[in-house]
Design a protein around this nucleic acid. Structure first.
Length: 419
RNA sequence: GCGGCCGUAGCUCAGCAUGGUUAGAGCACCUGGUUGUGGUCCAGGAUGUCGCCGGUUCGAAUCCGGUCGGUCGCCCCA
Protein backbone atom coordinates (compact mmCIF):
# COMPACT_ATOMS: atom_id res chain seq x y z
CA UNK A 1 0.00 0.00 0.00
CA UNK A 2 1.34 3.34 -0.97
CA UNK A 3 1.27 6.00 1.70
CA UNK A 4 -1.60 8.21 0.69
CA UNK A 5 -1.07 11.90 1.09
CA UNK A 6 -4.78 12.41 1.48
CA UNK A 7 -5.41 9.70 4.02
CA UNK A 8 -8.07 8.28 1.69
CA UNK A 9 -7.95 4.96 -0.04
CA UNK A 10 -10.41 2.96 -2.09
CA UNK A 11 -12.75 1.10 0.28
CA UNK A 12 -11.94 -2.46 1.13
CA UNK A 13 -12.64 -4.86 -1.69
CA UNK A 14 -12.74 -2.08 -4.29
CA UNK A 15 -9.98 -0.83 -6.51
CA UNK A 16 -9.10 1.65 -9.19
CA UNK A 17 -8.73 0.42 -12.72
CA UNK A 18 -5.88 2.33 -14.30
CA UNK A 19 -4.28 2.36 -17.73
CA UNK A 20 -3.40 0.14 -19.40
CA UNK A 21 -5.55 -2.42 -17.55
CA UNK A 22 -8.58 -0.15 -17.94
CA UNK A 23 -8.21 -0.24 -21.72
CA UNK A 24 -7.86 -4.01 -21.65
CA UNK A 25 -11.13 -4.18 -19.70
CA UNK A 26 -12.93 -1.99 -22.18
CA UNK A 27 -11.63 -4.07 -25.04
CA UNK A 28 -13.00 -7.25 -23.50
CA UNK A 29 -16.33 -5.59 -22.69
CA UNK A 30 -16.68 -4.35 -26.26
CA UNK A 31 -15.84 -7.83 -27.50
CA UNK A 32 -18.50 -9.28 -25.21
CA UNK A 33 -21.13 -6.82 -26.43
CA UNK A 34 -20.26 -7.71 -29.97
CA UNK A 35 -20.31 -11.47 -29.47
CA UNK A 36 -23.56 -11.36 -27.49
CA UNK A 37 -25.27 -9.21 -30.09
CA UNK A 38 -24.26 -11.65 -32.82
CA UNK A 39 -26.86 -13.95 -31.27
CA UNK A 40 -29.39 -11.14 -30.91
CA UNK A 41 -28.89 -10.31 -27.25
CA UNK A 42 -29.37 -6.57 -26.82
CA UNK A 43 -28.10 -4.46 -23.95
CA UNK A 44 -30.30 -3.63 -21.00
CA UNK A 45 -29.42 -1.26 -18.18
CA UNK A 46 -31.08 -1.67 -14.83
CA UNK A 47 -30.50 0.40 -11.67
CA UNK A 48 -27.49 -0.28 -9.47
CA UNK A 49 -29.93 -0.66 -6.57
CA UNK A 50 -33.36 -2.16 -6.19
CA UNK A 51 -35.97 -2.60 -3.53
CA UNK A 52 -34.41 -5.07 -1.14
CA UNK A 53 -37.30 -7.45 -1.67
CA UNK A 54 -36.36 -7.96 -5.32
CA UNK A 55 -33.17 -9.67 -4.24
CA UNK A 56 -34.51 -11.23 -1.07
CA UNK A 57 -37.00 -13.11 -3.23
CA UNK A 58 -35.15 -13.18 -6.52
CA UNK A 59 -31.87 -14.49 -5.15
CA UNK A 60 -33.35 -16.55 -2.35
CA UNK A 61 -34.07 -15.39 1.17
CA UNK A 62 -32.02 -18.15 2.74
CA UNK A 63 -29.02 -17.83 0.47
CA UNK A 64 -25.76 -16.64 1.91
CA UNK A 65 -25.72 -13.77 -0.56
CA UNK A 66 -28.96 -12.38 0.81
CA UNK A 67 -28.45 -13.15 4.46
CA UNK A 68 -24.88 -11.97 4.84
CA UNK A 69 -23.50 -10.21 1.82
CA UNK A 70 -25.88 -7.49 0.67
CA UNK A 71 -25.27 -3.76 0.92
CA UNK A 72 -28.65 -2.73 2.23
CA UNK A 73 -29.60 0.78 3.29
CA UNK A 74 -32.66 2.85 4.08
CA UNK A 75 -33.26 5.92 1.95
CA UNK A 76 -34.75 9.21 3.12
CA UNK A 77 -38.23 7.95 2.39
CA UNK A 78 -37.74 4.98 4.68
CA UNK A 79 -37.51 2.50 1.81
CA UNK A 80 -35.16 -0.45 2.13
CA UNK A 81 -32.86 -0.54 -0.88
CA UNK A 82 -29.99 -2.84 -1.79
CA UNK A 83 -27.04 -2.51 -4.14
CA UNK A 84 -27.46 -5.29 -6.66
CA UNK A 85 -25.51 -8.43 -5.76
CA UNK A 86 -26.26 -9.89 -9.19
CA UNK A 87 -28.27 -8.97 -12.23
CA UNK A 88 -30.74 -11.70 -13.05
CA UNK A 89 -33.37 -10.69 -10.50
CA UNK A 90 -33.17 -7.08 -11.70
CA UNK A 91 -33.48 -8.04 -15.34
CA UNK A 92 -36.48 -10.26 -14.69
CA UNK A 93 -38.06 -7.47 -12.64
CA UNK A 94 -37.45 -5.03 -15.51
CA UNK A 95 -38.93 -7.42 -18.07
CA UNK A 96 -42.08 -7.91 -15.98
CA UNK A 97 -42.42 -4.22 -15.12
CA UNK A 98 -42.12 -3.16 -18.76
CA UNK A 99 -44.25 -6.04 -20.07
CA UNK A 100 -41.58 -7.23 -22.43
CA UNK A 101 -42.81 -10.78 -21.85
CA UNK A 102 -46.05 -9.80 -23.59
CA UNK A 103 -44.23 -8.80 -26.73
CA UNK A 104 -42.04 -10.71 -29.10
CA UNK A 105 -40.55 -13.80 -27.48
CA UNK A 106 -38.05 -14.74 -26.42
CA UNK A 107 -36.81 -11.57 -24.78
CA UNK A 108 -33.06 -11.68 -25.25
CA UNK A 109 -31.06 -9.25 -23.16
CA UNK A 110 -27.42 -8.65 -22.26
CA UNK A 111 -26.13 -6.71 -19.29
CA UNK A 112 -22.76 -5.28 -18.29
CA UNK A 113 -22.28 -3.70 -14.92
CA UNK A 114 -20.94 -3.45 -11.41
CA UNK A 115 -22.37 -5.69 -8.70
CA UNK A 116 -21.86 -5.50 -4.97
CA UNK A 117 -21.37 -8.13 -2.32
CA UNK A 118 -19.89 -7.77 1.11
CA UNK A 119 -17.57 -10.76 1.08
CA UNK A 120 -14.07 -11.22 2.35
CA UNK A 121 -11.96 -9.91 -0.53
CA UNK A 122 -9.58 -12.25 -2.26
CA UNK A 123 -7.80 -12.45 -5.54
CA UNK A 124 -10.49 -12.44 -8.21
CA UNK A 125 -13.15 -11.67 -5.63
CA UNK A 126 -14.04 -8.09 -4.88
CA UNK A 127 -16.85 -6.26 -3.12
CA UNK A 128 -17.54 -4.30 -6.24
CA UNK A 129 -17.14 -6.56 -9.20
CA UNK A 130 -18.03 -6.36 -12.86
CA UNK A 131 -20.38 -8.93 -14.21
CA UNK A 132 -21.73 -9.41 -17.66
CA UNK A 133 -24.22 -11.87 -18.93
CA UNK A 134 -27.26 -12.66 -20.99
CA UNK A 135 -30.82 -13.66 -20.21
CA UNK A 136 -33.40 -15.28 -22.49
CA UNK A 137 -36.97 -15.11 -21.22
CA UNK A 138 -40.19 -16.56 -22.51
CA UNK A 139 -38.87 -19.70 -24.20
CA UNK A 140 -38.62 -23.11 -22.63
CA UNK A 141 -37.23 -24.96 -25.66
CA UNK A 142 -33.97 -26.78 -25.08
CA UNK A 143 -32.54 -24.97 -28.08
CA UNK A 144 -32.49 -21.77 -26.03
CA UNK A 145 -30.40 -23.48 -23.38
CA UNK A 146 -28.01 -24.59 -26.09
CA UNK A 147 -27.92 -21.10 -27.58
CA UNK A 148 -27.08 -19.47 -24.25
CA UNK A 149 -24.29 -21.97 -23.72
CA UNK A 150 -23.09 -21.38 -27.27
CA UNK A 151 -22.87 -17.62 -26.68
CA UNK A 152 -20.80 -18.20 -23.56
CA UNK A 153 -18.64 -20.80 -25.25
CA UNK A 154 -17.97 -18.53 -28.23
CA UNK A 155 -17.05 -15.68 -25.89
CA UNK A 156 -14.39 -17.76 -24.13
CA UNK A 157 -13.04 -19.32 -27.28
CA UNK A 158 -12.79 -15.96 -29.01
CA UNK A 159 -10.63 -14.74 -26.16
CA UNK A 160 -8.45 -17.80 -26.44
CA UNK A 161 -9.43 -18.96 -22.97
CA UNK A 162 -9.30 -22.65 -22.30
CA UNK A 163 -12.31 -23.62 -20.28
CA UNK A 164 -14.14 -26.74 -19.30
CA UNK A 165 -17.91 -26.73 -19.54
CA UNK A 166 -19.67 -28.64 -16.82
CA UNK A 167 -23.27 -29.48 -17.45
CA UNK A 168 -26.12 -30.90 -15.45
CA UNK A 169 -29.87 -30.97 -15.22
CA UNK A 170 -31.53 -30.60 -11.85
CA UNK A 171 -35.02 -31.30 -13.13
CA UNK A 172 -38.02 -29.39 -11.92
CA UNK A 173 -39.46 -29.15 -8.41
CA UNK A 174 -42.20 -31.75 -8.16
CA UNK A 175 -42.74 -35.26 -6.92
CA UNK A 176 -42.29 -36.82 -10.34
CA UNK A 177 -38.85 -35.32 -10.68
CA UNK A 178 -36.56 -33.47 -8.24
CA UNK A 179 -38.90 -34.30 -5.37
CA UNK A 180 -38.37 -38.01 -5.74
CA UNK A 181 -34.67 -37.47 -6.16
CA UNK A 182 -34.54 -35.38 -3.01
CA UNK A 183 -36.25 -38.18 -1.11
CA UNK A 184 -33.79 -40.72 -2.48
CA UNK A 185 -30.82 -38.52 -1.66
CA UNK A 186 -31.98 -37.77 1.86
CA UNK A 187 -32.58 -41.47 2.45
CA UNK A 188 -29.09 -42.26 1.21
CA UNK A 189 -27.53 -39.55 3.37
CA UNK A 190 -29.38 -40.74 6.46
CA UNK A 191 -28.12 -44.22 5.79
CA UNK A 192 -24.53 -42.98 5.65
CA UNK A 193 -24.87 -40.18 8.17
CA UNK A 194 -22.15 -41.61 10.42
CA UNK A 195 -19.61 -41.36 7.61
CA UNK A 196 -20.36 -37.74 6.80
CA UNK A 197 -18.30 -34.83 8.03
CA UNK A 198 -19.82 -33.01 10.98
CA UNK A 199 -20.87 -29.86 9.13
CA UNK A 200 -22.41 -31.82 6.30
CA UNK A 201 -24.81 -33.71 8.54
CA UNK A 202 -26.70 -30.51 9.20
CA UNK A 203 -27.21 -30.07 5.47
CA UNK A 204 -29.31 -33.22 5.19
CA UNK A 205 -32.27 -31.35 6.55
CA UNK A 206 -31.55 -27.87 5.22
CA UNK A 207 -30.05 -28.34 1.78
CA UNK A 208 -29.14 -31.92 0.89
CA UNK A 209 -28.01 -31.04 -2.64
CA UNK A 210 -25.23 -28.93 -1.17
CA UNK A 211 -23.51 -31.96 0.28
CA UNK A 212 -22.20 -32.51 -3.24
CA UNK A 213 -20.14 -29.32 -2.84
CA UNK A 214 -18.45 -30.49 0.34
CA UNK A 215 -14.66 -30.37 0.45
CA UNK A 216 -14.51 -32.88 3.32
CA UNK A 217 -12.84 -36.07 2.17
CA UNK A 218 -15.14 -38.31 4.21
CA UNK A 219 -18.19 -36.67 2.68
CA UNK A 220 -16.72 -36.81 -0.81
CA UNK A 221 -16.23 -40.55 -0.41
CA UNK A 222 -19.84 -41.00 0.57
CA UNK A 223 -21.10 -38.79 -2.24
CA UNK A 224 -19.28 -40.68 -4.94
CA UNK A 225 -21.83 -43.48 -4.49
CA UNK A 226 -24.82 -41.23 -3.91
CA UNK A 227 -27.81 -41.30 -6.23
CA UNK A 228 -27.62 -38.69 -8.96
CA UNK A 229 -30.37 -36.35 -10.09
CA UNK A 230 -30.08 -37.35 -13.71
CA UNK A 231 -31.36 -40.86 -12.84
CA UNK A 232 -34.51 -39.35 -11.36
CA UNK A 233 -35.55 -36.84 -13.99
CA UNK A 234 -39.13 -36.96 -15.23
CA UNK A 235 -39.53 -37.79 -18.89
CA UNK A 236 -40.00 -34.14 -19.94
CA UNK A 237 -36.91 -32.96 -18.11
CA UNK A 238 -34.89 -35.94 -19.31
CA UNK A 239 -35.89 -35.26 -22.89
CA UNK A 240 -35.08 -31.58 -22.48
CA UNK A 241 -31.63 -32.52 -21.26
CA UNK A 242 -31.02 -34.96 -24.09
CA UNK A 243 -32.06 -32.32 -26.62
CA UNK A 244 -29.59 -29.78 -25.20
CA UNK A 245 -26.79 -32.29 -25.37
CA UNK A 246 -27.46 -33.27 -28.93
CA UNK A 247 -27.68 -29.60 -29.89
CA UNK A 248 -24.29 -28.99 -28.29
CA UNK A 249 -22.91 -32.09 -29.97
CA UNK A 250 -24.17 -30.81 -33.31
CA UNK A 251 -22.03 -27.68 -33.04
CA UNK A 252 -19.02 -29.34 -31.50
CA UNK A 253 -19.23 -27.82 -28.04
CA UNK A 254 -17.65 -30.21 -25.57
CA UNK A 255 -18.93 -30.65 -22.04
CA UNK A 256 -18.54 -32.81 -19.00
CA UNK A 257 -21.62 -34.13 -17.31
CA UNK A 258 -21.40 -33.24 -13.65
CA UNK A 259 -24.25 -34.52 -11.48
CA UNK A 260 -22.77 -32.66 -8.53
CA UNK A 261 -23.38 -29.28 -10.16
CA UNK A 262 -26.40 -28.04 -8.24
CA UNK A 263 -28.47 -24.99 -7.46
CA UNK A 264 -30.18 -24.88 -4.12
CA UNK A 265 -33.26 -22.80 -4.74
CA UNK A 266 -36.63 -23.95 -6.00
CA UNK A 267 -36.95 -21.63 -8.97
CA UNK A 268 -33.81 -23.03 -10.55
CA UNK A 269 -34.90 -25.70 -12.96
CA UNK A 270 -33.41 -28.15 -15.35
CA UNK A 271 -30.19 -26.84 -16.87
CA UNK A 272 -27.23 -25.86 -14.72
CA UNK A 273 -23.81 -25.20 -16.17
CA UNK A 274 -20.49 -23.75 -15.24
CA UNK A 275 -17.30 -22.82 -17.05
CA UNK A 276 -14.09 -23.58 -15.18
CA UNK A 277 -10.55 -22.42 -15.96
CA UNK A 278 -7.35 -23.70 -14.42
CA UNK A 279 -4.74 -21.67 -12.55
CA UNK A 280 -7.15 -19.45 -10.70
CA UNK A 281 -6.95 -21.14 -7.33
CA UNK A 282 -10.14 -21.28 -5.38
CA UNK A 283 -11.83 -18.78 -7.66
CA UNK A 284 -11.69 -21.03 -10.69
CA UNK A 285 -15.27 -20.63 -11.89
CA UNK A 286 -15.16 -18.12 -14.72
CA UNK A 287 -18.85 -18.16 -15.48
CA UNK A 288 -22.00 -20.09 -15.11
CA UNK A 289 -25.70 -20.10 -15.54
CA UNK A 290 -28.83 -22.07 -15.71
CA UNK A 291 -32.53 -22.15 -16.18
CA UNK A 292 -34.85 -20.40 -13.74
CA UNK A 293 -38.36 -21.17 -14.90
CA UNK A 294 -39.81 -20.33 -11.49
CA UNK A 295 -38.22 -16.94 -10.95
CA UNK A 296 -40.80 -14.71 -12.63
CA UNK A 297 -43.52 -16.10 -10.38
CA UNK A 298 -41.40 -15.66 -7.30
CA UNK A 299 -41.21 -11.98 -8.25
CA UNK A 300 -44.99 -11.79 -8.49
CA UNK A 301 -45.34 -12.17 -12.23
CA UNK A 302 -46.90 -14.78 -14.47
CA UNK A 303 -44.96 -17.93 -15.30
CA UNK A 304 -42.18 -16.92 -17.67
CA UNK A 305 -39.46 -19.45 -18.34
CA UNK A 306 -35.95 -18.13 -18.44
CA UNK A 307 -32.33 -19.07 -18.73
CA UNK A 308 -29.20 -17.02 -18.37
CA UNK A 309 -25.50 -16.92 -18.10
CA UNK A 310 -23.19 -14.65 -16.12
CA UNK A 311 -19.47 -14.20 -15.85
CA UNK A 312 -17.20 -12.17 -13.64
CA UNK A 313 -14.90 -9.95 -15.61
CA UNK A 314 -12.28 -9.77 -12.84
CA UNK A 315 -11.60 -13.45 -13.17
CA UNK A 316 -11.65 -13.33 -16.94
CA UNK A 317 -8.96 -10.64 -16.88
CA UNK A 318 -6.91 -12.68 -14.43
CA UNK A 319 -7.17 -15.72 -16.64
CA UNK A 320 -6.24 -13.70 -19.72
CA UNK A 321 -3.16 -12.07 -18.27
CA UNK A 322 -1.73 -9.19 -20.28
CA UNK A 323 -3.54 -8.64 -23.52
CA UNK A 324 -2.30 -6.75 -26.53
CA UNK A 325 -3.79 -3.31 -27.08
CA UNK A 326 -3.84 -1.22 -30.21
CA UNK A 327 -2.00 2.08 -29.82
CA UNK A 328 -4.34 4.93 -28.99
CA UNK A 329 -2.85 7.36 -31.45
CA UNK A 330 -1.26 7.19 -34.88
CA UNK A 331 0.76 10.38 -34.87
CA UNK A 332 2.70 12.60 -32.49
CA UNK A 333 3.51 16.18 -33.42
CA UNK A 334 7.07 17.12 -32.48
CA UNK A 335 7.38 20.89 -32.53
CA UNK A 336 10.65 22.86 -32.51
CA UNK A 337 10.81 26.60 -32.03
CA UNK A 338 8.22 29.08 -30.82
CA UNK A 339 6.31 29.29 -34.07
CA UNK A 340 6.09 25.53 -34.49
CA UNK A 341 5.08 25.06 -30.87
CA UNK A 342 2.16 27.41 -31.48
CA UNK A 343 1.25 25.31 -34.52
CA UNK A 344 1.32 21.98 -32.71
CA UNK A 345 -2.12 22.22 -31.16
CA UNK A 346 -3.88 23.39 -34.35
CA UNK A 347 -2.14 20.68 -36.34
CA UNK A 348 -2.99 17.94 -33.86
CA UNK A 349 -6.59 19.17 -33.81
CA UNK A 350 -6.74 19.11 -37.60
CA UNK A 351 -5.53 15.50 -37.67
CA UNK A 352 -7.93 14.44 -34.92
CA UNK A 353 -10.84 16.02 -36.77
CA UNK A 354 -9.80 13.96 -39.77
CA UNK A 355 -10.03 10.85 -37.60
CA UNK A 356 -6.31 10.40 -37.04
CA UNK A 357 -5.33 9.85 -33.41
CA UNK A 358 -2.72 12.41 -32.46
CA UNK A 359 -0.85 13.74 -29.45
CA UNK A 360 1.73 16.45 -28.95
CA UNK A 361 3.99 17.70 -26.18
CA UNK A 362 2.25 19.41 -23.28
CA UNK A 363 5.26 19.60 -20.97
CA UNK A 364 7.53 22.01 -22.82
CA UNK A 365 10.04 19.29 -23.61
CA UNK A 366 13.00 19.64 -25.86
CA UNK A 367 13.18 17.57 -29.00
CA UNK A 368 14.73 14.52 -27.42
CA UNK A 369 12.07 14.47 -24.75
CA UNK A 370 9.35 14.91 -27.35
CA UNK A 371 10.70 11.97 -29.34
CA UNK A 372 10.67 9.81 -26.25
CA UNK A 373 7.15 10.91 -25.46
CA UNK A 374 6.17 10.07 -29.04
CA UNK A 375 7.36 6.51 -28.49
CA UNK A 376 5.60 6.40 -25.14
CA UNK A 377 2.34 7.44 -26.81
CA UNK A 378 2.48 4.41 -29.07
CA UNK A 379 2.25 6.56 -32.18
CA UNK A 380 3.61 5.01 -35.35
CA UNK A 381 4.70 8.36 -36.78
CA UNK A 382 6.42 11.42 -35.42
CA UNK A 383 5.30 14.50 -37.35
CA UNK A 384 8.21 16.87 -36.92
CA UNK A 385 7.71 20.56 -37.56
CA UNK A 386 10.49 23.09 -37.17
CA UNK A 387 11.44 26.37 -38.79
CA UNK A 388 12.66 24.72 -41.96
CA UNK A 389 9.55 22.60 -42.37
CA UNK A 390 7.12 25.45 -41.74
CA UNK A 391 8.93 27.64 -44.23
CA UNK A 392 8.51 24.94 -46.85
CA UNK A 393 4.91 24.18 -45.85
CA UNK A 394 5.94 20.65 -44.97
CA UNK A 395 6.54 18.32 -42.06
CA UNK A 396 9.17 15.67 -41.58
CA UNK A 397 7.30 12.44 -40.93
CA UNK A 398 9.35 9.78 -39.20
CA UNK A 399 8.24 6.18 -39.03
CA UNK A 400 9.17 5.29 -35.48
CA UNK A 401 9.16 1.59 -36.23
CA UNK A 402 11.61 1.66 -39.14
CA UNK A 403 13.40 4.94 -38.49
CA UNK A 404 12.71 6.09 -42.05
CA UNK A 405 11.60 9.66 -42.56
CA UNK A 406 10.44 11.83 -45.39
CA UNK A 407 9.08 15.31 -46.06
CA UNK A 408 5.32 15.52 -46.50
CA UNK A 409 3.33 18.62 -47.50
CA UNK A 410 1.38 19.88 -44.49
CA UNK A 411 -1.91 19.93 -46.39
CA UNK A 412 -1.45 16.31 -47.42
CA UNK A 413 -0.75 14.95 -43.93
CA UNK A 414 -4.24 13.54 -43.38
CA UNK A 415 -4.02 11.65 -46.63
CA UNK A 416 -0.49 10.41 -45.93
CA UNK A 417 -1.16 9.31 -42.36
CA UNK A 418 -4.57 7.90 -43.12
CA UNK A 419 -3.26 5.57 -45.79
C1' G B 1 -17.61 -14.68 9.17
C1' C B 2 -12.96 -18.29 10.50
C1' G B 3 -7.51 -19.61 10.04
C1' G B 4 -2.28 -18.87 7.83
C1' C B 5 1.19 -15.44 5.52
C1' C B 6 2.48 -10.43 4.11
C1' G B 7 2.71 -4.58 4.10
C1' U B 8 10.04 -0.61 2.77
C1' A B 9 10.58 4.63 -3.72
C1' G B 10 5.56 4.87 -9.24
C1' C B 11 6.68 -0.91 -9.89
C1' U B 12 9.48 -5.55 -8.24
C1' C B 13 12.11 -6.29 -3.98
C1' A B 14 16.80 -6.33 -0.35
C1' G B 15 17.67 -4.66 4.70
C1' C B 16 14.55 -6.91 9.93
C1' A B 17 16.72 -13.48 13.48
C1' U B 18 22.03 -10.50 16.88
C1' G B 19 17.54 -2.51 17.42
C1' G B 20 22.50 2.17 16.53
C1' U B 21 25.46 7.62 12.21
C1' U B 22 22.32 10.87 6.09
C1' A B 23 17.32 3.50 4.46
C1' G B 24 19.33 0.62 -0.54
C1' A B 25 19.10 -2.07 -5.64
C1' G B 26 16.88 -2.98 -10.40
C1' C B 27 13.09 -1.14 -13.58
C1' A B 28 10.42 3.36 -14.65
C1' C B 29 10.87 8.93 -14.58
C1' C B 30 13.87 13.69 -15.44
C1' U B 31 18.59 16.17 -17.23
C1' G B 32 23.14 16.07 -19.98
C1' G B 33 26.65 13.59 -23.52
C1' U B 34 24.04 14.73 -29.31
C1' U B 35 22.76 23.98 -30.51
C1' G B 36 16.68 19.55 -34.56
C1' U B 37 15.75 12.94 -33.98
C1' G B 38 13.25 7.92 -29.84
C1' G B 39 14.00 2.68 -28.71
C1' U B 40 21.16 0.94 -27.22
C1' C B 41 25.20 3.12 -24.31
C1' C B 42 27.60 6.53 -20.63
C1' A B 43 27.19 10.30 -16.68
C1' G B 44 24.18 12.77 -13.32
C1' G B 45 19.33 13.85 -10.76
C1' A B 46 14.54 13.69 -8.24
C1' U B 47 11.23 10.53 -5.41
C1' G B 48 10.15 7.28 0.79
C1' U B 49 6.08 10.28 7.14
C1' C B 50 9.90 1.80 6.06
C1' G B 51 0.78 1.02 5.87
C1' C B 52 -1.27 3.55 10.41
C1' C B 53 -1.64 4.15 15.93
C1' G B 54 0.47 2.99 20.40
C1' G B 55 4.16 0.38 23.62
C1' U B 56 9.32 -1.27 25.07
C1' U B 57 14.15 1.37 24.66
C1' C B 58 19.03 6.39 25.47
C1' G B 59 17.68 4.93 20.35
C1' A B 60 12.68 1.17 16.35
C1' A B 61 12.07 -0.13 9.16
C1' U B 62 14.07 -3.81 12.74
C1' C B 63 11.11 -6.07 19.12
C1' C B 64 5.70 -6.16 21.21
C1' G B 65 0.28 -4.97 20.88
C1' G B 66 -3.66 -3.04 18.18
C1' U B 67 -5.61 -1.40 13.64
C1' C B 68 -6.21 -0.87 8.35
C1' G B 69 -5.11 -3.16 3.78
C1' G B 70 -3.50 -7.22 0.66
C1' U B 71 -2.94 -12.41 -0.17
C1' C B 72 -3.76 -17.92 0.37
C1' G B 73 -7.21 -21.54 2.25
C1' C B 74 -12.32 -22.37 4.45
C1' C B 75 -17.33 -20.58 3.73
C1' C B 76 -19.95 -18.74 -0.42
C1' C B 77 -19.89 -17.65 -5.27
C1' A B 78 -18.77 -15.07 -10.53
Amino acid sequence: MAPEETGFSAPRGTRDLLPPASSAWQKVIRYAQDSFSKAGYQPVETPAFEQTEVFARGVGATSEVVTKQMYTFTDQGGRSLTLRPEATASVVRAVLENNLHRGALPVKLAYFGWMYRQERPQKGRYRQFFQLGIEALGASAATVDAEVIEVADRFYKGLGLKTILKLNSIGHPGESCRGSYNDALVAYLREHEASLAEEDRARIATNPLRTFDSKESSTIAVMSEAPVITDHLCSDCAEHFVTIRSALDAVGIEYELDPRLVRGLDYYTRTAFEFVAGDLGAQNAVGGGGRYDGLAEVLGGPPVPGIGFALGLDRIMLALGDIALEPAVTAYVVALGDEAIREAFPLATRLRRAGIGCEFDLMGRQMKGQMKDAVRSGARFAVIIGEAELEAGEATVKDLATGEQERVALDRLEEWLGA
